[in-house]
Computed example of a mutant assay.
Amino acid sequence: MQFIEMQAKARAVRAKYTELESARYGRSWTPEETMLGFLGDVGDLAKLVQGKAGVRPRDDLDAALAHELADCLWSVIVLADTYDVDLESAFDDTMRALSEHLDGSREAP
């Protein structure tokens, strides 16, 4: 799947959440509430990573880990949309800069 397709799917799910939130609360979540939801997902992800280390085992660990990683990615895509960040370009630029930095750090004593 191409990144643009992932963005389209994330936007479609966000639109469905907007409808649900509007029906339940009379408004959509704010960006701050979306971020707090993301933090909750990161906490859930941390517990699953502990599970992979044997600290919090569960029967469906691999499926739960995949699900939570996808939830976190969805939140990042939604937050990028909220703040008009071209995530694909930002990722490419950041990975290039990190790679150059790491290449340079190998040359230093």
Rank of each mutant, 00 (worst) to 15 (best):
A108E: 11
K9T: 09
A80D: 05
A80V: 06
L20T: 12
A64S: 14
Q50T: 04
W29S: 05
E88H: 08
Y25A: 12
A90P: 00
L98A: 11
R11K: 14
A53L: 15
E68N: 06
S105N: 10
A64P: 02
D103V: 06
S89L: 12
R27D: 04
S99P: 00
V76F: 02
D71F: 02
A108G: 07
W74S: 06
F3A: 10
E5D: 15
D84T: 10
S75M: 12
G43F: 03
R96K: 13
R58S: 12
V13E: 07
L73N: 06
C72L: 05
L61W: 05
L39G: 10
V85Y: 06
R58V: 08
G104N: 14
A63G: 02
T82R: 03
Y83D: 07
P57H: 04
R58C: 14
M1E: 08
F38V: 07
R24L: 15
L65K: 02
D92P: 00
Q2S: 14
A63N: 05
A90L: 13
S28N: 09
K52S: 14
L45G: 07
K16H: 09
A97C: 02
L79P: 01
T18S: 07
S105K: 14
D60A: 07
V76Y: 00
Q50K: 13
H67C: 07
D59W: 01
A53P: 01
F3V: 07
W74T: 05
A64Y: 01
D81E: 15
W74N: 09
D103M: 08
V76L: 14
G37C: 07
E68T: 15
D93C: 03
D84S: 15
D81Y: 00
G40N: 13
T18K: 08
